[in-house]
Amino acid sequence: MSPTSISTTAARVVSIVLHPFLVLAALALLAAWRVDPASLSRTALGIGVAIAIVSVFIWQRRRGGHWQTVDASRRQERPLLYALALLVAGAYWIWMGGRASATSNGVLAAVAMLCVAGIANRWIKLSLHMASLSFAGVAAWPLWPAASIVALAALPLLGWARLRMARHTVPEVLGGTALGLVTGVVLLAAA
């Protein structure tokens, strides 16, 4: 295996392990575990169903030739992804009772973040990988500071992976990071 293919494989692994669905699912599970342990099984079930729905949708879009990659890398592929993510996040919020809680407030913040990214998509394809990880890094601070530090420390590695795979440009990586950080700070300030 050449160094280039090893590097690309490593970038793919990092992008999969730190995929927005996995990062946001981990954050929701962490919030449920630390703030409302009684909701942990309901949260896990809701996340499992949401991931299954989104996975089937992504598989269908990719298999049907509508998307070049599984992460909707082209800007024109993104509007439908944003719509589905908002629908799934809204359904999850209702599933969790539609009331203010650690997980539902986090879901609403993530929805707001997706809305901003969706609007910005007209001009720039912000990295949702970077936005999700930076948001989770900030939002996790009051729940478990060690997890927060790990998430924030992983940002440069994820940024490298997104650039290495040519999924984003430097402004898209930095813009996604900034969006996630600001959203996380707003969530904590509102708490």
Rank of each mutant, 00 (worst) to 15 (best):
L143N: 08
A32W: 10
R61H: 05
S7C: 08
M1R: 13
C115R: 04
Y82T: 03
R78V: 03
E77T: 15
G180C: 06
Y82W: 11
R99S: 12
P20K: 00
K125H: 09
P145I: 04
A83C: 07
V116R: 02
L157F: 01
L114W: 00
H19N: 15
W95M: 01
S148T: 00
A120D: 13
V54G: 07
A89Q: 13
R78F: 01
I94T: 10
A11H: 03
A91K: 01
S127H: 13
M165E: 13
S2E: 03
A151I: 06
F21P: 00
A151P: 01
A146I: 10
A91T: 11
W67D: 11
G137V: 10
L87W: 10
A110H: 02
P20C: 02
A26R: 03
A50K: 06
I58K: 06
A72C: 11
L30P: 02
S73A: 12
R78Y: 01
Q68H: 15
V88T: 12
V14D: 08
R34V: 05
L181T: 04
P37R: 09
S2L: 03
K125G: 07
V138Y: 02
P156F: 01
G137R: 05
T183I: 02
A190I: 00
W33C: 10
A100G: 11
R12W: 12
G137L: 00
G46Q: 09
R164P: 11
A28T: 03
T9L: 11
V186H: 04
E172D: 04
V111L: 12
W93V: 05
M113D: 12
A32Y: 01
R34D: 05
R99Q: 11
G64F: 03
P145C: 05
A166S: 06
S134T: 15
A146C: 03
I47T: 12
K125Q: 00
H129Q: 08
S101H: 02
S2R: 01
V116H: 01
L45I: 15
L80E: 14
A191Q: 12
L181N: 11
G137S: 07
A32R: 03
T177G: 14
A83Y: 14
R78D: 10
M165W: 00
V116L: 06
G180V: 14
A31Q: 10
P145K: 04
L187S: 08
S7P: 01
V170E: 11
I119D: 02
L81G: 11
H66D: 14
P156H: 02
A109F: 05
A146N: 04
G98D: 09
T9Y: 14
A109W: 02
I94A: 10
L80H: 09
Y92K: 15
A110R: 05
E77M: 14
A151R: 12
A117W: 14
M113Y: 09
T183F: 00
A190L: 04
S134A: 14
R61P: 05
A85Q: 05
I47G: 14
A153H: 03
A38W: 06
E172V: 01
K125L: 06
R74F: 12
S148V: 01
Y92E: 15
G184Q: 06
G118R: 09
K125S: 03
A110P: 00
Q60Y: 13
I16C: 14
P79V: 03
T177P: 05
S101A: 13
V111N: 00
W67N: 06
T8A: 10
V54Q: 13
V13R: 03
V185M: 09
R42C: 08
